[in-house]
């Protein structure tokens, strides 16, 4: 967060991790939510590789994609470990006929089992839409991981702390682009405003607490305050307006998605599913 454009206010009040331990299965579900979200954004961003607006930015967005898939694998691997150790037997374990792995969790769960945020499954659209999606998500992820790095769950805390370094860059990079495009040409400003309008309805869900987040994130509204504060600061510099009175869509965290997710999974999972049990 060194860039003057994108300094996240770390002075804001500390969000407490809850003192109540999570219920059985909640931790696994929360990890899957984190893993699914970063994987689906990997899937989306990955489509830019080789098609970016200029070579340097093709490389930059792909770097972010690589960070995201790395995070995703960390969360899936940890979730798999917990699932295998627990008496709970979620569907992927039964389906693979074996123990849970990062791949069984990513490739053999269905669209109703995926817990990713609706925001990340939205289409790439133009570069403006991809940038806005990345920015809105990365700022959220920044404050979330800032909190999770203090988790009592050492493994989760370690993944969050490592990821936070990466996300710090994602926020800085995407904020710079929000400002550049917002305050660039009339056309770029218009495209940005359109992208914001398209994506804004999917931002509310980030701050609607799912059952499995209880006991892991408490006071989720504080996350929202910090998120909106940062978004406002950057949008102001970018001469972009925040939409008002927008109905917020939700459901992703609990497996009720937009129609887009089914297509993403069909494409992503087909090889694993047509060759069950094969090693790659």
């Amino acid at each position: 967060m060194q860039s003057e454009n994108s300094s996240v206010n770390t002075e804001a009040k500390k969000i407490q991790t809850s003192k109540v331990p999570p219920s059985e299965g909640f931790r696994e579900a929360f990890l899957l939510h984190l893993a699914d979200t970063t994987l689906i954004l990997t899937q989306r961003n990955g489509a830019w590789c080789g098609h970016g607006p200029i070579l340097e930015q093709d490389i930059a967005i792909t770097n972010i994609t690589l960070d995201l898939i790395g995070q995703s694998r960390n969360f899936y691997q940890y979730a798999a470990k917990l699932i295998n150790e627990s008496s709970l037997a979620p569907s992927p374990v039964e389906k693979a006929g074996d123990e849970a792995t990062e791949d069984s969790l990513a490739y053999l769960r269905t669209e109703r089992e995926f817990k990713n945020l609706l925001l990340v499954e939205q289409e790439n659209g133009d570069w403006a839409q991809t940038i806005v999606r990345q920015f809105l998500f990365s700022v959220y992820q920044y404050f979330l991981f800032e909190q999770l790095q203090n988790s009592k769950d050492d493994q989760l805390a370690a993944i969050a702390a490592k990821s936070l370094k990466e996300v710090t860059y994602h926020v800085s990079w995407s904020a710079d682009w929000v400002i550049r495009l917002g305050d660039g040409t009339d056309e770029s400003n218009e495209r940005m405003q359109k992208a914001i309008a398209a994506l804004w309805p999917y931002t509310g869900e980030m701050f609607m607490q799912a059952d499995y987040e209880q006991g892991i994130i408490s006071e989720i509204h504080l996350l929202k305050d910090r998120w909106i504060e940062k978004v406002k600061t950057v949008f102001e510099e970018a001469t972009l307006a925040i939409p008002e009175n927008i109905f917020m869509q939700s459901g992703g965290k609990n497996g009720v998605h937009t129609e887009k997710l089914g297509h993403i999974l069909a494409e992503m999972q087909y090889l694993q599913r047509t060759n069950l049990g094969a090693k790659w």
Binding site: I69, G70, L271, N275, W280
Partner: peptide, 11 residues
């Protein structure tokens, strides 16, 4: 990229 059959291969 979108169809790589494992997360490791995709990365």
């Amino acid at each position: 990229i979108s169809r790589a059959p494992s997360l490791k291969r995709k990365a």
